[in-house]
Design a protein around this nucleic acid. Structure first.
Length: 220
DNA sequence: TTGCTGATACACT
DNA sequence: GTGTATCAGCAAA
């Protein structure tokens, strides 16, 4: 498979909903980025929602700045931010000026496998896109992608995928310091490409959350 | 035992 | 306010 399907593309109404709803809806959807005429991407298997208000973990909680301006853009806008010399990608939800978004944490790599393996420097499929930093590395998403409206760009493709609602697990978000208890992480049950508890800063106590999918609430 | 990852932390402008 | 590197813990070997 060299090209993502073009039928059933996501539209702006899909992203005009709340971030938690969009985060769950994105699971199973396809995302692809065209670089030098080559499509890179796969199926989304893990997401996290970041709210506009009452969410200290969200970048928008500090208000609009030059660095997070894209997070206040139109629904479907790409918000790419740097962290630990890497990047993470988010998709803006609700509406312009709101400041909510969905972080793409893991995808199942499908398109442009050879190029993504080369970018990542590994042929281990589970080490290509099983983390937000890895996704950006593999799909060549950098700061210059920040602010791109993916629904209008010819170099981006977002498509509907399988209906996975019955297989979606909800759990606390990973690797955040603030509001770590909110169940705003969503992932596909049993998918091998879902990231581990990679968050390292002040991770939630084990006795609180247990193994990633043992304490999760299916179909919240 | 080693390598890799990451909604943080801090120095600089 | 902005840009960018740390280091503790997980996964692989």
């Amino acid at each position: 498979m060299s090209l993502p399907p073009v039928q059933s593309s996501l539209n702006v109404e899909f992203f005009r909903r709340g971030p938690a709803e969009v985060a769950r809806g994105l699971l199973g959807c396809g995302v692809a980025h065209r670089v030098d005429g080559r499509w890179l991407g796969g199926w989304i298997v893990e997401t996290e929602a970041y709210l506009a208000q009452d969410d200290p973990a969200s970048h928008s909680s500090r208000g609009l700045t030059a660095g997070n301006a894209s997070m206040f853009g139109a629904p479907g806008t790409l918000y790419v931010y740097p962290i630990h010399a890497k990047h993470c990608m988010n998709l803006v939800t609700e509406d312009s000026g709101i400041g909510s978004a969905v972080l793409i944490r893991a995808i199942e790599p499908v398109w442009g496998m050879e190029q993504m393996q080369q970018n990542r420097g590994t042929t281990n499929h589970r080490r290509i896109t099983s983390g937000p930093g890895m996704i950006c590395h593999a799909m060549q998403i950098q700061r210059d992608c920040d602010g791109v409206e993916v629904l209008r760009s010819n170099d981006w493709r977002l498509t509907l995928g399988r209906d996975l609602r019955a297989r979606i697990i909800t759990s606390p978000r990973v690797g955040i310091r603030h509001a770590a208890e909110l169940p705003l992480r969503f992932f596909v049950d049993g998918n091998r490409y879902v990231s581990g508890l990679a968050g390292l800063h002040n991770r939630p106590r084990r006795d609180e959350i247990g193994p990633a999918n043992a304490h999760g609430t299916a179909h919240l």
